[in-house]
Nucleic acid binder design. Structure first.
Length: 581
RNA sequence: CGGGGCGUGGCGCAGUCUGGCUAGCGCGUCUGGUUUGGGACCAGAAGGUCGCAGGUUCGAAUCCUGUCGCCCCGACCA
């Protein structure tokens, strides 16, 4: 492609509103253009990168034995009513009504396709002989995001590869899941991403039933917990914490003392007013679990993990109590609850066990206790791991130190079980003529996020640094002066010959000064830059430069096409060899 | 949905507090010329309902009311 004949609207300055590197660079490099919040046009350069990511995903899905199909984005609302997900999705599901021949038809744009694919399988699969099968598609999904943000990282319309496996047994599901897991590893390797496969919320199947593929990035929306020692990785909601040995009592118990803390209903306000550390304080959270009140004690600098609490209780529902209920249970407004004298059951995080002379609410408005000690002042029904992991906590496997890192979720694999096959009737007859629901798994990749995550982690102050596998073009030819006959003739010949041997070439044939061309070359980040300039041409040389290297090198013009094609080929194959994370 | 910020030629901004001539600047674009290895120079030109609507005023980009849009933080997120 010739630069002059396509649309690459590079920008010298950062558009107002773009903040994170991937967003800034995608706009400045002319990869995408914004139509509205959460909706972007993929410009020619951006689309080529997106298509490459898509193709890598397709190849690895096919290699893993999955079968591609394409389902409509337009779906009948009845399908979502059958699975009960109209309520579950709520405002995220984009619904609308249209008229067709005097009838009103209620439709929804698919935010994901478990329902559609399960309905499909219900219609066409009835025997164990047709199973197992994994179906996938690469298709646009629609979700009315409450708050689209971060450029293409969170948008209302995005390209998703979604795959669904149907098996006759749990064993089969595990095999299908493993195939997808390993295909994902290959995909992200080939895309040049550095990622972690982290344990995620497991849902109905339990156990090791869900992994998220996370790319570590400072601007990621998710938080993962990672142990450098043994490689343990989990998302924050899921991460276990190693046993903490209760510290010996540090000081002799002080007397219980009630102090005035007017208006100070938060950890921050109280610690400031009393001059104590949040780690000396006990947060008392009043929950309602399946209609029953429960007090949960958490050290002041920690965060409660409702998933852990709910699982441990075996409760169906768990929510923070309303202000009225809190006042009823504690006798004080929100912000002044404490365990001393509390009548409802009390559970505590294990870190609370080692606190002495703690500070807690006094169950009275505008008052706290200092010198709170267990068991003198209160008793705990049960100690357990009830909080989110924090930086420096011990690893649950090796007891070394855990680190919290921000990450971008690029893929998710999940063992579903029979939730959808039950509600949508995807059943099969086994060899003993018994009917069962198919056992499902689902596997998603955000294709746009591959691009954004890649740029987020591979850029410098001058622009994008594409890996060969995803770069919109493989070689950028830069004739420095398009008005110089020998330069242009050489460029045209290289362009034609490289293209004919299958190298994807972009030629910057604009009548611009060299500085402009070099700046744009760095910005759009094509891996191999080939400069044709009057100087080196006189010596029969070309200048080549890798985007990720500092210095250019000279190669002879003679045989340059073969040499360049070899260099490109070698880079293309990086990542293919890696099969394990 | 709560909190904060911002809307002025294609892009980035000044001007708004304290109302006052034809609304400025840089970049980009177009024409002509000189240039050609890291965002050139000279001369000329085009391009703006100051987000939109209503109000106050002799007079509004500027003040008031409403409204739309975009960005950030939080809540939410199969």
């Amino acid at each position: 492609m010739r630069w002059s004949q396509t649309l690459i609207p590079t920008m010298k300055e950062t558009p107002e509103g773009a903040e994170i590197p991937s967003h800034v660079l995608m706009l400045r490099a002319g990869l995408v253009g914004q139509l509205m919040a959460g909706a972007y046009t993929y410009l020619p350069l951006g689309l080529r990168a997106l298509r490459k990511a898509e193709q890598i995903v397709r190849e690895e899905m096919d290699r893993a034995g999955a079968v591609e199909l394409l389902m409509p984005a337009l779906t009948p609302i009845s399908l979502w009513e059958r699975s009960g997900r109209v309520e579950a999705f709520g405002n995220v599901l984009i619904q609308f009504k249209v008229r067709r021949q005097n009838r009103q038809v209620h439709l929804a744009l698919g935010p994901t396709h478990e329902e559609v694919v399960t309905d499909l399988v219900a219609r066409h699969v009835s025997s164990y002989r047709q199973l197992p099968i994994t179906l996938y598609q690469i298709q646009t999904k629609f979700r009315n995001e409450e708050r689209p943000r971060f450029g293409v990282l969170r948008t209302s319309e995005f390209l998703m590869k979604d795959a669904y496996s149907f098996d006759t047994s749990l064993d089969g599901l595990n095999q299908s899941y493993d195939k997808m897991y390993h295909a994902y590893c290959r995909i992200f390797d080939r895309c040049g991403l550095t990622y972690l496969a982290v344990e995620a919320e497991s849902g109905p199947i339990g156990g090791d039933a869900s992994h998220e593929f996370m790319v570590l990035a400072d601007n990621g929306e998710d938080t993962v917990v990672h142990c450098a020692g043994c490689g343990y990785a989990a998302n924050l909601e899921r991460a276990d914490i190693g046993n903490r040995i209760a510290a010996p009592p540090a000081a002799a118990a002080q007397p219980l003392n009630k102090v005035d803390t007017p208006q100070a209903g938060s950890i921050e306000a109280v610690s400031k007013m009393l001059g104590c550390q949040p780690a000396q304080m006990i947060k008392t959270l009043i929950y309602v679990a399946d209609e029953q009140p429960l007090a949960v004690l958490i050290r002041g600098d920690h965060e409660a993990n409702e998933g852990k609490i709910r699982r441990l209780l075996g409760a169906k529902s768990l929510a923070l109590a309303s202000p009225e209920l809190i006042e009823q249970a504690t006798g004080a407004p929100v912000g002044f609850a404490g365990p001393v004298g509390l009548k409802i059951p009390i559970w505590a995080d294990q870190d609370v066990a080692s606190l002495t002379n703690a500070v807690t609410g006094a169950n009275a408005a505008d008052a706290h206790f200092t010198g709170v000690n267990r068991p003198r002042d209160f008793e705990v029904g049960r100690f357990a791991d009830l909080r989110n992991a924090a930086d420096g906590d011990p690893c649950p496997r090796c007891q070394k130190s855990l680190a919290l890192r921000h990450a971008i979720e690029v893929g998710h694999v999940f063992k579903l079980g029979t939730k959808y096959s039950d509600s949508l009737g995807a059943k099969f007859l086994d060899e003993k003529e018994q009917q069962h629901s198919a056992i499902m798994g689902c596997y998603g990749i955000g294709v746009n996020r591959i691009i954004a995550a890649l740029i987020e982690t591979r850029h410098d102050e001058n622009g994008v640094i594409w890996p060969m596998s995803l770069s919109p073009y493989e070689v950028l030819l830069v004739p420095l002066n398009v008005n110089q006959t020998d330069v242009m003739e050489t460029a045209e010949r290289l362009y034609a010959e490289l293209t004919s041997v299958g190298v994807e070439v972009l030629m910057d044939d604009r009548d611009q000064r060299p500085g402009v061309k070099f700046k744009d070359a760095d910005l759009i980040g094509i891996p191999l830059r080939v400069v044709i300039g009057g100087r080196s041409l006189k010596d029969g040389q070309l200048e080549i430069k890798w985007r990720w290297k500092e210095a250019p090198e000279q190669i002879p013009l003679d045989g340059a096409v073969v040499k360049l094609a070899d260099l490109v080929q070698a880079e293309r194959n990086l990542g293919h060899a890696t099969t394990e994370a």
